[in-house]
Design a protein around this nucleic acid. Structure first.
Ligand SMILES: NC(=O)c1ccc[n+]([C@@H]2O[C@H](COP(=O)([O-])OP(=O)(O)OC[C@H]3O[C@@H](n4cnc5c(N)ncnc54)[C@H](O)[C@@H]3O)[C@@H](O)[C@H]2O)c1
Ligand SMILES: NC(=O)c1ccc[n+]([C@@H]2O[C@H](COP(=O)([O-])OP(=O)(O)OC[C@H]3O[C@@H](n4cnc5c(N)ncnc54)[C@H](O)[C@@H]3O)[C@@H](O)[C@H]2O)c1
Lengths: 216, 216
DNA sequence: CTCGGTTTGTGAACGTTTTCACATGTTTCC
DNA sequence: GGAAACATGTGAAAACGTTCACAAACCGAG
């Protein structure tokens, strides 16, 4: 596929465009200008146009972008115009919350497998999904065609789980444990680090940090 | 205070240094080199040295950085060498999970108030904290000296809550709702957007994106 | 007390991302 | 049909962040 080098920031902003376009579509807008799109996500019009221009020409001069069509285009670029099967490891506090998170499903991420090692949880039905024994991941990941793993186990065991998950062919991991996981080069890994955001706020307050528009 | 312009990336990396230094201290290391610190968080030694140099000279040439001392310094820079009182709005799936998140407390963020508008929840004891009626936030935020608000209510009502919270003098907000909140310029706002990370993974897989080291 | 081995701290070079600015094209309205 | 208003797409400039490369400083051994 396309080999151009798209920056991480651009990809993250595509998520924002997608979100804004979904709202615009629900509000029955036919077209939207880069100016309006930028305003809705606190970006600049030039940024919006530049980002989109990496992937093609979607707009009409003098008029703007067709909302519904652009939304589809962005979905297609992000790869969320399809279903992704997700397995979740660790059905504890945060894991349970994630299972109930509607936004994931709405964007094509379907949690189809739950794994834990707690005998009291294994076999029970959680929001319509039976929690599996993590020791069976081998068989069950393959059977269910899982492509993405979400890690929500304690930090102390996260690396072990990830090693196993990688062994079983998973190439994309979203990690909630506050630890730097080691994965092979061909595995995509993203970390969700909530402390980091709070620490950013703390830093800003203590230092009267004159913030630019946040990256996200 | 310091008016130098520190980049967002640097601040985020400080969180990583803090985390790594905490582990190193627990492992009884006396000193650590920029090389080792970089390795532990998948960064480069030059990056580590440059970041720290914005705030002072903490190391010894030929030897490295004193672990315990640097950890304190970083904590002080980040402003987490003190207690921050936090109020959480919306004690639902994600809100409940956050209350139980030990990492926050460990870094000085103490959730002291829970607010909801569900009569069945108000008054009940959740992990040692009585859930308050969100309509009483006026009195209770002031009484408890809350300085940070965490927003975990549905996206549809998030802006209303934030408007109130800002009216009551809060200057720092961590938002989990997938929406772009409007706040005055002097209020710090950070967003936690989990869909964004999954979408990044999706994009990477669909485009065979050759990833650099992730920003975080 | 000197030498060899290390590792910091930092300007300067480099690379990447953002912003600017405008030519180009479309629509609207008289 | 022409003029005014609007808005995209994009090279070029500017801003920003990262990496390089090396002088300076320290340690420990002999
Ligand atoms: N609670 C939060 O709000 C929050 C926020 C951000 C990150 N995190 C991180 O997410 C992770 C989970 O946090 P939590 O609060 O949900 O903890 P938790 O203890 O509630 O949940 C952990 C779950 O993992 C299961 N588990 C333990 N070892 C396992 C193994 N070897 N294989 C499979 N399952 C195993 C446990 O049985 C439990 O169900 C931690 O790394 C935590 O740091 C939590
Ligand atoms: N569940 C997740 O894993 C997850 C992940 C990321 C973001 N989010 C976001 O976090 C928010 C909450 O999600 P959730 O899954 O916990 O939903 P939820 O419905 O379980 O919880 C929402 C809570 O907010 C309370 N609430 C509703 N209106 C309120 C008001 N006006 N004032 C005070 N409290 C009010 C509800 O009573 C409920 O307790 C949503 O915006 C969601 O998009 C959720």
């Amino acid at each position: 596929m396309a080999k151009k080098k798209i920056s991480e920031s651009t990809i993250r902003r595509l998520s924002l465009y997608y979100r804004a376009l979904s709202v615009l579509e629900k509000e029955n807008h036919q077209t939207v200008s880069s100016k309006e799109l930028a305003k809705r996500e606190k970006l600049t019009p030039a940024q919006v146009r530049k980002d989109l221009s990496f992937f093609g020409s979607f707009g009409t001069r003098g008029l703007g972008y067709p909302v519904a069509e652009l939304r589809n285009q962005v979905a297609s670029i992000l790869g969320i115009n399809r279903l992704w099967k997700v397995a979740l490891f660790g059905v504890g506090n945060i894991g349970s919350a994630l299972v109930s998170y509607k936004e994931f499903a709405r964007q094509g991420f379907r949690i189809v497998k739950l794994f834990d090692n707690d005998q009291r949880k294994i076999g029970s039905n959680h929001k319509g999904i039976i929690i599996s024994d993590v020791r069976n991941m081998n068989k069950e990941i393959a059977e269910a065609n899982v492509e993405i793993a979400v890690i929500a186990v304690p930090a102390t065991v996260a690396q072990y789980i990830v090693d196993d998950v990688v062994d079983h062919g998973i190439k994309a991991i979203l990690n909630f444990a506050p630890i730097n996981l080691k994965v092979p080069d061909d595995v995509y890994l993203r970390n969700e680090n909530m402390s980091m955001e709070l620490e950013y706020l703390s830093f800003a307050m203590v230092n009267n940090h004159t913030q630019k528009r946040p990256k996200v």
